[in-house]
């Protein structure tokens, strides 16, 4: 059985809110190391891989593997009934068909309980190959989100070029074209505004900006984002969590 407690419901609420627009029915695999979710978005252009390590919970017990088949939007709806600073407990018996969520306020004089019906979801799993990425960029999550939002005014696609000079985001459409270039830099005051580039060879890939804007909704989860790219492969975009990550594998647009 699973019993997992978070000191603040907001930790789970904001993660579910960040990924809910892309996903539908998915399985959350729970075991002694934590909760893991891997799911393709409806268009199969983005794969979301979420890991919430057991040490991120104030109490965690999962003696036998439990699979929680649910619709992520239903989970988001139930989580909306929790205050951000409520103590949140997830509980599910082995082979149960429901997930019990309880929300307690810190003075423990109000407790809500919701039972979310679980489903059997036969989901296709993709094997994610270990990839040597030619380029790794660590930058501010908010700056990435803002840069992509600006370019989405010009086009539905962005080209990202990474070389030793820096990283360039460019877009071209009927209106015209635009680009933003960032040099590698270290910001001593607030580190998250640094741009750190590790490069084994230059790389350039193009991506759909609508899907990218869904991905950058995770900017609320982490101050920095790690972009990893290599020619002809999906990009890996990672937002680190206190004890885990939200990782996206994003298929590029390819010259036909």
């Amino acid at each position: 059985m699973l019993e997992a407690k978070l000191d603040a419901a907001s930790q789970l609420k904001k993660i579910v809110e960040a990924i809910r627009d892309m996903l539908g029915e998915c399985n959350i695999e729970c075991n002694e190391t934590g909760l893991a979710l891997q799911s393709l978005d409806k268009s199969h252009i983005v794969l979301v891989s979420l890991l919430l390590g057991s040490d991120g919970f104030s109490e965690y017990r999962c003696d036998r593997g439990v699979t929680l088949g649910l619709n992520i939007n239903s989970l988001a709806t139930v989580l909306r009934c929790a205050n951000n600073d409520d103590i949140l407990t997830l509980r599910s018996e082995d082979r149960a068909n429901e997930l019990i969520l309880t929300f307690e306020d810190s003075k423990a004089d109000r407790i809500s309980e919701f039972n979310l019906r679980l489903m059997d979801i036969d989901q296709e799993y993709l094997a994610i190959p270990e990839t040597e990425y030619a380029a790794t960029v660590v930058m501010s999550a908010a700056v990435l989100q803002r840069t992509l939002r600006d370019l989405s005014a010009l086009s539905e696609a962005v080209t990202i070029e990474i070389d030793k000079e820096g990283i360039r985001f460019s877009a071209e459409g009927d209106l015209g074209k635009g680009s933003t270039h960032f040099k590698p830099c270290v910001d001593m005051e607030n580190a998250e505004n640094s741009i750190n580039i590790t490069l084994s060879e230059p790389v350039s890939l193009s991506f759909n900006l609508q899907y990218f804007s869904n991905i950058t909704k995770a900017s609320s989860l982490s101050s920095t984002v790690t972009l990893q790219m290599t020619a002809g492969m999906p990009a890996q975009i990672e937002y680190k969590l206190p004890s885990g990550h939200v990782r996206y594998y994003f298929a590029p647009k390819i010259e036909d």
Partner: peptide
């Protein structure tokens, strides 16, 4: 022109 790939073009099913 470019066309949008899907992850099935790169990742194999388990």
């Amino acid at each position: 022109t470019t066309q949008q790939a899907t992850l099935m073009n790169f990742f194999s099913k388990k």
